[in-house]
Design a protein around this nucleic acid. Structure first.
Lengths: 224, 224
DNA sequence: ACCAATGGTAACAAGTTGGTAAAATCTGAT
DNA sequence: ATCAGATTTTACCAACTTGTTACCATTGGT
């Protein structure tokens, strides 16, 4: 039995939809205020959320944002408005589908199944997320999606680290593989560069968790 | 770069959509007959398929069924018809979304990202609005819709920047790709042109936020 | 506890790069 | 041919990046 949460202030409408979906083996629980819905989502687990945009005491978009903060649950937004800015905002907030009112229950049913088909297939948290990503063509390194400003040599060192995440790298290896570093440089300058990198990428540069030192060996990047 | 296959017999329409999506880092390859599209899907790998229902020599639904037999690729179906029986059939065949024609390109973009986010665990990629838009036919560049007067060389540089938004561009690359710049010009003249461009497009040309310098590399345009 | 080896980093120095004013050159319209 | 505006070159400066050194802190072995 599929469990769906619904946040819709028009209880009559909610009931109609609920009855229809019940016929198709989907149980809908409606919450007629955003706060009720939000607290229910925290406690119970649902397969999907149907969210009405035009709510009384809180903006539907805000509700969507709040839900997305803590959950990856599929969200279908329905709204009486159908202009692009609304759609834009909804998808931006992480909605999975947008249905302008009025819509046919049958279409809602189809879209629910379509989304769940995709969603259920994805085992949650299978792929560990990488912390650092690097794009050479954009000349940028991102930490959890956030752009980090690096100088050229720093960028290339970081790019090399990312490429060889998890492996121990000697200072010599770093010097020979990073173009921006003069190959005649002393190995000590690597230490300095690493220090500068840490200032930019570590939460606490004094206690590095990403670029760690391997005494007598070199360094390695932890990227997970 | 997201790779999308499209099966659409209206090549003009296909081109329009392709151009729009290209601006958002999505490459579209259109096949104007189902058989072409089907064989392409067997050989190349795409992230998503956009399928038009009203095709000449084969029913779009049949195409959808054939694709689904061998692939789990996300499918967005677009159709001039919008009756429930069509939608029913499409979702039944395993389509991921259904867009009745005519639709706005922007909405297509949103739905593509929404589906890919689920399918590929794509980090919620914010499709921010572009700041700079360029029309070669009109020979104009607009910043947030507002026309900016540029000289010829400035315009072409800007056009190239916009086309390659977000990517690091070397001075050499700029010179060879911008016709208005004599290819024998010294790379230093790029700096001067960039300086003048900044005077016209930056709020504070001394602290550029749109055309940023990449020391030792070149420049890049931030267009979001 | 001591010591030697290693890593961290502040401070400095040298070299490089980008910004830009001003002059020179080019180009196209009249 | 002339002129105005656009483009390119030149030259200089300011800012930034990188590399070295020196000194301190930490580690690990004895």
């Amino acid at each position: 039995m599929i469990q769906i949460a619904m946040i819709e202030d028009d209880t009559e409408m909610a009931e109609l939809i609920g009855e229809f979906l019940a016929k198709h083996n989907i149980q809908v629980t409606n919450y007629d205020t955003p706060s009720l819905g939000l607290s229910a989502l925290k406690v119970k687990s649902f397969d999907l959320l149907i969210l009405d945009l035009s709510l009384p005491d809180m903006d539907g978009l805000e509700v969507c944002r709040l839900v997305r903060q803590s959950s990856d649950i599929p969200i279908i937004i329905s709204s009486a408005r159908s202009d692009m800015s609304d759609k834009n905002a909804c998808f931006y907030m992480g909605a999975d589908d947008y249905m302008p009112k009025p819509y046919e229950s049958q279409e809602l049913l189809l879209r629910i199944h379509s989304i769940l088909r995709r969603y259920k297939k994805e085992p949650i948290e299978v792929t560990k997320k990488e912390i650092f990503e690097c794009s050479v063509e954009r000349q940028e390194v991102r930490k959890n999606g956030e752009l980090i400003y690096l100088t050229n040599a720093e960028f290339e060192i970081m790019a090399y680290f990312i490429k060889r995440s998890g492996f121990a790298l000697s200072r010599e290896e770093i010097i020979t593989n990073v173009d921006s570093i003069n190959y005649e440089s002393s190995v000590k300058s690597i230490d300095v560069m690493i220090g500068r990198l840490r200032l930019k990428i570590e939460e606490d540069p004094k206690k590095p968790h990403h670029i760690i030192s391997l005494r007598g060996i070199g360094y390695k990047l932890i990227n997970e």
